[in-house]
Amino acid sequence: MIQPNIRPHPKFVNVFISGPSEKLKLYTKNLDKGNVIYGEKIILKMDEEFRLWDPYRSKLAALILRGTQKIYLERKTTCLYLGASSGTTISHISDIVSNGLIFGVEISERSLRQLIQNTSSRKNIIPILGNALNPQEYSMLIYKPVDLIYQDVSHPDQANIAIRNANLYLKEGGKIILFIKSQSIKSTEKPKEIFQNELNTLKSANLKVLEKINIDSYAGGHLGVMLEK
């Protein structure tokens, strides 16, 4: 097998790429060596493990491949992750913010069960069982304001979840990466109208829209939005 030429991503810290630009593959350096989360491919190079990052399973990877300007993740970022699920994306974020901290909030016991088992050996993930719509529920665990909120939930009131959590936990000037799922808001309306509605709600709460990226080709009916408080 030919070893892919893994090199650092020109723009983002701790993100790695291989292949030609039209067939780019993404990787992150495995923080928890020897463990695989969701059966992803691992490439060994110079004593390091690189985990392949699948854009069809992780929307952040899709966002990067669709050419976003910034992902606001540095080595020491503190991040609040809403909708952690079983740990696919959160594990890659954990690789990127190697000296940072992630609070992973998830409402379903079933998913959190997997998350805990997958990430118990990663020091920078704090799993939280709670409803993101009531951010006070988990205030005892979030012991410092966060630099970034990453939200990917299936809920009809996604804009409000983002607003409430931002009011409570986000630093002034902090960023939000939000994925709007049109299908869980209303399946009978056109995605475009739903996106516009949600964006209006967000704007009316004094959140500045920095960037909008359509990731339809990787996840149907989804819009990635970057916001600033």
Partner: peptide
């Protein structure tokens, strides 16, 4: 460390 432990045991 303690937050992680607390979060995990609560969950």
């Amino acid at each position: 460390e303690r937050s992680k432990k607390l979060g995990e045991s609560l969950a």
